[in-house]
Amino acid sequence: MPLGLLFYRDGRRAAHLAVHHAPYLTQNKTAEFPDKSDLTLECSRRSLCLKLWMTLQMTNETAVYAAHEHLLSLAQYAAASLRDIAGWHVLYAPFSNIVCFRREHAAGADANAVSQAIVECINASREYSIGHTFISDDLYVRLCFMNPRTSYRDIDHLLKAINGMACLAESALVGAESRCSKAS
């Protein structure tokens, strides 16, 4: 298993090597609570191989595989659930632990603004930490399932919160009643 650690005397030169920007990995850096992506195996760019090696030493390949299969099933469940709720567009069928989605037509509101409001409000609740990413000029909400203890009930609760937040955002942005109140 390859593992490389580099030590630098000049911090500026070391920082120059890490100029790549992945905003979906580091969006909570200014918040008063920690960015959970720094604390997970899948999303950290720091010594990933060492973390994987340590995990394999503490468990076994079968347990790691089962955890990843569970995370994939959570992503697939979330995507299917979103497709069943009117007004959501799922970017693709998940083949990993990530689901990207956004409101379709956003009831007259700017869909990017609705996505941004969903991410900001859900993260402000501190119950969940969700992300976003741009595909072309469209802002998608991004769920990345990383905790093998997450249950399908947790997903249902999260999606209910996201759907409710989308309805509030649409209402606030359009200044009128959204389609959600009619569906409830």
Rank of each mutant, 00 (worst) to 15 (best):
R83C: 11
E61N: 03
I135Y: 13
L72S: 03
S81K: 13
F95N: 11
Q116H: 10
T62V: 10
L91V: 05
L173E: 02
Y92R: 12
S181V: 05
H20Q: 10
A166N: 03
I118L: 02
V90S: 09
V114K: 01
Y24I: 08
A183S: 11
S129P: 00
A66G: 09
E127D: 11
E170C: 04
I122P: 01
V174R: 09
S178N: 09
R126T: 07
A169Y: 00
I98T: 02
D137Q: 15
H20C: 10
L74P: 01
D38R: 10
L6I: 12
E120N: 09
N112I: 05
P2E: 10
S151M: 04
A66Y: 02
E69A: 09
S37E: 12
R179A: 14
R179I: 10
A117Q: 10
A67H: 02
A111P: 05
P148R: 05
A75G: 05
A67P: 03
L17F: 12
E42V: 02
A79T: 01
S129G: 02
A117M: 07
P148T: 12
R179Y: 08
L48I: 12
S129M: 12
I162P: 01
D137W: 06
R83D: 15
Y65R: 15
N123W: 15
V119D: 00
A166K: 03
Q57V: 06
I98Q: 03
W53S: 07
D10V: 07
R83K: 11
L82E: 03
A67L: 01
L50S: 12
E170N: 02
Y77V: 05
M1D: 06
I135Q: 14
F145Q: 04
I98M: 11
A63Q: 15
M165Y: 02
R149H: 08
V114F: 04
Y92F: 13
M165E: 07
S47T: 07
W88A: 00
T55Y: 01
F33S: 15
I98A: 03
L17S: 11
V64M: 15
Y8A: 13
L143V: 08
S125C: 00
T30K: 15
A113I: 00
E120P: 04
R179D: 14
E104R: 14
D110R: 08
T26D: 13
R149P: 02
A169I: 03
K51P: 01
V141T: 09
G11T: 14
A176T: 14
K182V: 08
A161I: 06
R45V: 06
A107N: 10
Q57E: 13
E127P: 04
Q27R: 12
Y77W: 06
S184F: 09
C100Q: 01
N28A: 13
F101G: 00
V114M: 01
D110W: 03
A107C: 06
T55V: 08
L3D: 12
S184Q: 05
C43K: 00
T62W: 15
L82I: 07
L143Q: 01
A106H: 00
Q116Y: 09
R103I: 01
D35A: 10
R12A: 11
P2S: 06
T26N: 15
N163W: 01
D110M: 05
H20A: 14
D110Y: 02
G131T: 02
P94C: 04
